[in-house]
Computed example of a mutant assay.
Amino acid sequence: MNPTLRTERLLLEPYTPDDEEDFVALFQDRRVSQWMGDGPATEAEDRALFGRIFTKVYAQELFDVWAVRRDGRLIGHAEIKPTDMAQGHEIVYALTPEVWGSGLGRELARAIVAHGFETLGLTEVHATVAASNSASLALLERIGFEHVRDVTEDDGSTTHVLTRRQG
């Protein structure tokens, strides 16, 4: 079962059905979704994604996915999951733009990485980040991720693959 994680300012816990509107609002914000997966999706696609968290990810215990809360309010999304691109486990995180620049992204990423090492027993974790996402790249560098290689996407853009090793 998806564990609950706590940091100094954040609570990472499994989503509840009541989180759907806030989840969709987060993923519909183009400032956020431009960096997620294949980029912005339709509202219907984001609602379907939210549904799959319950019907597939949680039901089959595929990987850990969290609602990220601060002071009881949903302010983000986080995951650690197997990925073929990096041949291991990848961290995924997103926060509402209202909290960008507050250090919460670093706090969140550190918590997911620690969960990967301490709970899942991983020796390394990965992140895949668009080359143009300078804020996320800088954040990951600050917490010990190193650039490993680049992947050229179908649209010609570049994705950086970064790795953080335990220790």
Rank of each mutant, 00 (worst) to 15 (best):
R165W: 09
T123L: 09
W100P: 05
L162F: 07
I91W: 03
T123Q: 14
L140A: 05
G37S: 12
H115Y: 15
I112A: 06
L122N: 08
R106F: 02
D38M: 10
G76Q: 04
T158S: 03
E124Q: 09
L122R: 13
D64W: 11
A138S: 12
L120F: 02
E61D: 14
A86E: 03
T55D: 12
F117W: 02
R164W: 12
A44T: 11
M85D: 11
A131Q: 08
L139D: 03
E146I: 10
F63G: 03
V68L: 11
V68Q: 06
L120G: 02
D64A: 15
E61G: 05
I53R: 13
T152Y: 08
F145K: 06
A130E: 11
T128S: 09
I112H: 05
I91P: 01
G101R: 04
I80H: 09
S157T: 13
R165C: 12
A67W: 00
A48M: 10
G88N: 12
W35F: 15
G101V: 07
A127M: 07
G144R: 07
V113E: 04
L74N: 05
V65W: 02
M85N: 07
K56A: 15
A138H: 09
L74T: 02
H147C: 01
I53K: 06
A127D: 06
P97E: 13
D46Q: 15
D154Y: 09
A138R: 13
N133F: 02
K56H: 11
K81F: 12
L162A: 05
G88I: 11
G101Y: 06
T83S: 14
W66Q: 02
L95A: 10
V129K: 00
L95H: 05
D71R: 11
D84R: 14
L162D: 01
E107M: 09
V113Q: 04
V151C: 01
E153V: 07
L62P: 00
R73N: 01
F54A: 04
D38W: 08
A130G: 14
V129G: 00
F54G: 05
K56N: 13
T163L: 12
T96M: 10
L104V: 09
E61Q: 15
V148T: 11
T158R: 12
E107T: 01
